[in-house]
Design a protein around this nucleic acid. Sequence first.
DNA 1: AATATGAATGAACGTTCGTTCAGAAACTAC
DNA 2: GTAGTTTCTGAACGAACGTTCATTCATATT
Lengths: 205, 205
Amino acid sequence: MKAKLEEILHQSSRLMAKKAYHGTSMRDLACQTGHSVSGLYNYFKNKEELLYLINYNGFSAITDTLNRTLETMHGPQERLYALIYNHIHYFMAHRDEMKVMMMGTQEMALEKSRVIREIKDKYTQTSQEIVREIYQAETGAAPDKKEISRKTFLLFGMMNWIFGWYSPKEHGDTEALINDVYTTFLHGLSGEKTSFPACAGLFKK
Amino acid sequence: MKAKLEEILHQSSRLMAKKAYHGTSMRDLACQTGHSVSGLYNYFKNKEELLYLINYNGFSAITDTLNRTLETMHGPQERLYALIYNHIHYFMAHRDEMKVMMMGTQEMALEKSRVIREIKDKYTQTSQEIVREIYQAETGAAPDKKEISRKTFLLFGMMNWIFGWYSPKEHGDTEALINDVYTTFLHGLSGEKTSFPACAGLFKK
DNA sequence: AATATGAATGAACGTTCGTTCAGAAACTAC
DNA sequence: GTAGTTTCTGAACGAACGTTCATTCATATT
């Protein structure tokens, strides 16, 4: 009953990860899950709700495990590592769901997309807080709000883009990946600013 | 004539950036461009070709400007900065196109997707070469192929994810963003590896 | 003025879309 | 074995999809 919905959500993620939301038809999904088309509607109200449930379950899971982990960690570096470890490990175990979750909430009803946005905002806020703490701990300087925001999103970029290229065979195991992200971000954060004003002028708009 | 196709491609990017490929209908596009539905077919063979042209023009432009710029730059740091500057500036000026280009080539005919993949592969190769050079220059160590590959993709992640969050008002101007990416990656690359083996055990699978 | 050329159109084609619904099938409880 | 309940299904719905085509329109050439 509940397990069947979970299976439908997973298969739905597999299809939508390949062909996107509008490219995946209810008939495709019925074929993939072994149900009839009409039978699927016993488990959810409509197609749009599928997208919502995948997003809701995914983002809820990732924030829940992070918050539970952070309760026992208080050092800035450990907390940053926990954030990265949690994020990447979740997405490694749910790559199709991840891709669907990256697609945005455009196709959802307004109220549903607001629920998802709130979870994401809270996750972003937690992450920015961790980045702010470690910035202060590493540099001792007063953190600029815009800069913290930018750098947090750069971290997200490194982590979220993984689904587009990573394969263990070609790029090493997950631990190496996590360490690269952690090392890159930590040292990058505390590195002194280096600009190339002379260089920038060389490019024509 | 050619200008009208360019305009159609741009409007197509705008729509597809919002609603994805399958979510954008020929009728939507006709309405957006002011043409009739059938009139659009004077400018391209079919809908799938639209996706191809957006991708081809975009990736061609970005690689062409990069290659032209790299011809006059020989220092590893300058070359890295040029890569980042070129990538981010192009995507800032073509955000909708960028989003479409990130959607992948799943909906294209096989031969067309192969053309796109070849351009992307060459761009990746050039970037990896730059990263390899700077890794050697900064650390003096022999570069591990897998590590270079991973870190190059982390750089791409920081840059490609920008379209999902950046707004000048909230996160500062483009130059600050470019500098953050450059600084983060440069210092992150040469930073010594820091791992948390004790920490990793704290997480349950 | 007549003709040739390419651009643009409305109507229609056959498919496929998400969704519904009356009823069959399967399972429980008495 | 019968009645009640839940699970599932095939057929069908109207709407929207990408694409085609016989025309019309606009412009340029002779």
